[in-house]
Nucleic acid binder design. Structure first.
Length: 432
RNA sequence: UCCCCAGUAGCUCAAUUGGCAGAGCGGGUGGCUGUUAACCACUAGGUUCGCGGUUCAAAUCCGUGCUGGGGAGCCA
């Protein structure tokens, strides 16, 4: 019985007979010599079949193979400069598990619509598997960093009775006889956990029924949200900065192969070092005004193009703080010295990728919170438990949300967020 | 929700701007002893997104619907 090995490990088995279980990525027939490119999820290896006899049984089996047919291949591992990747498998025999029907995804060009329709198959391409591996590394590095910093993972519920952001973007569902909503953010529950554990974070999917059709929006996306008792805005800014530096370092270290497949220029990533620049809304507005390229009026939120104009001035992630209070969420703490401004931060990724982190210091004063809930016409009933947090040992606390998919898009330098998650949920697009 | 663009073979696209619907890839058959999205020859494959209109004649022009793409607003 030959040893089952994965392609990523073949270099350790040069000269030995091994068994590879995989799929036909491509085949080439050059008469007496045939090539099968076998992929097994960890890599691709060129495999060769040779015989003097044009009618030998293994050639007949080869002829049946179609793209993506599943096969178990036995052969001897050889070092060979002519093979892509430098190693080659000299096939002694192979077993056909299933002959694939005509595979819809060919080696030539496809349009986005067609690829999205076949997302379940598109995932098998080298490029897509590289992105998924980088996504996995980013998630692992986020978890490792937060754990190392002493934050406790606490999960927030997906089904909730209350909104966090504007009520227009909620997915409504039924909860027996009550109405329920899919979570837009785990933050409010994380605040409760933070008062229990001091340093916490939630990690999970969030849902926004926004009718937005852009390269940076998903209907279902993943967020990591730390919440930290007694922390002020500056504390979470430093946390966010160190987190991003750590993620980039880890990806450069673990996934250089995948970044190469994506043809990602790693120089801009190598420049991601602390400290990150931090400017106030007013300064950001000045930059916009001077650029002459923006129509945004003072006091309004920045648009996607505005973010690009501002972040192009810096080669690192940039924090913009102290936004006007009327354009931010109800739970955000006003600045003591300037109550029209909010102790909040948006962190914009470089290279035009825009906002990947949004955070703030939270209101800890009971009366102020009640006033804000009133102003935003929110229900005191459903928020009773949240208001309670300000009655029993309330303290200043802060947190932020990091969008996983936007982070993946930036680090991989992807033109569109749809490739950052295995099965993106987008506007009017629930299949596959 | 608004603005712009597109829909032709399984896929990616052509079609002299209103005059015989075609090529590459993929499929099939055959050839080739080192290919790198192999190559060469032959071959099958069409309700030109649906409906209505203009015209001697519509893939092409007009109207309408559907689907998809790009962007805006909003956001991570």
């Amino acid at each position: 019985m030959k040893k089952w090995v994965y392609i990523k490990d073949v270099s350790k088995f040069v000269g030995e007979e091994v068994l590879i279980k995989g799929w036909v990525y491509n085949k080439r027939d050059v008469g007496r010599i045939k090539f099968i490119l076998v992929r097994d999820g960890t890599g691709i290896i060129q495999s060769t079949i040779w015989s003097k006899d044009p009618d030998c049984p293994i050639f007949e089996k080869f002829d049946k193979l179609t793209q993506e047919s599943s096969i178990k291949v036995s052969g001897k591992v050889k070092k060979d400069e002519r093979a892509p990747g430098g190693y080659e498998l000299e096939i002694t025999d192979f077993e056909i598990i299933q002959i694939a029907e005509e595979y819809p995804i060919s080696k030539k060009n496809h349009g986005t619509a067609f690829l999205m329709e076949n997302r379940h198959l598109w995932l098998r391409s080298i490029r897509q598997t590289a992105i998924l591996k980088i996504r996995a590394s980013i998630i692992k590095s986020i978890r490792d960093f937060m754990d190392k910093e002493g934050f406790i993972l606490t999960d927030s519920p997906i089904l909730t009775a209350n909104a966090v952001e504007g009520t227009t973007t909620l997915f409504e569902t039924s909860y027996f006889d009550e109405k329920a909503y899919l979570s837009q953010s785990g933050q409010l529950y994380a605040e409760a956990s933070a008062l229990a554990l001091a340093k916490t974070y939630t990690f999970g999917p969030t849902f926004r029924a926004e009718k937005s059709k852009t390269r940076r929006h998903l209907i279902e996306f993943w967020m990591m949200e730390p919440e930290w008792a007694y922390a002020e805005l500056d504390d979470v800014f430093i946390l966010a900065q160190n987190l991003l530096v750590y993620i980039v370092e880890r990806v450069l270290e673990e996934r250089s192969e995948e970044l190469k497949i994506l043809e990602r220029d790693t120089k801009p990533l190598e420049e991601i070092k602390a400290p990150f620049p931090k400017i106030k809304y007013d300064e950001a507005f000045e930059i916009l005004k001077k650029s002459g390229k923006s129509q945004t009026s003072y006091g309004s939120d920045f648009g996607g193009t505005d973010e690009t104009i501002i972040s192009e001035k810096f080669n690192k992630p940039l924090a913009i703080t102290h936004y006007p209070s009327n354009i931010k969420a109800f739970y955000m703490q006003p600045d003591q010295d300037n109550p029209d401004k909010i102790l909040c931060m948006d962190i914009l990724a470089p290279e035009g990728y825009g906002e990947i982190i949004g955070g703030s210091q939270r209101i800890h004063d009971l009366d102020l919170l009640l006033k804000k809930i009133n102003e935003h016409k929110l229900s005191k009933e459903v928020f009773k438990w949240y208001i309670d947090l300000r009655k029993y040992g309330s303290v200043p606390h802060s947190g932020f949300g990091l969008g996983v998919e936007r982070t993946v898009a930036w680090i991989c330098h992807l033109p569109h967020i749809r490739e950052t998650i295995p099965f993106p949920r987008m506007l009017y697009n629930l299949y596959p």
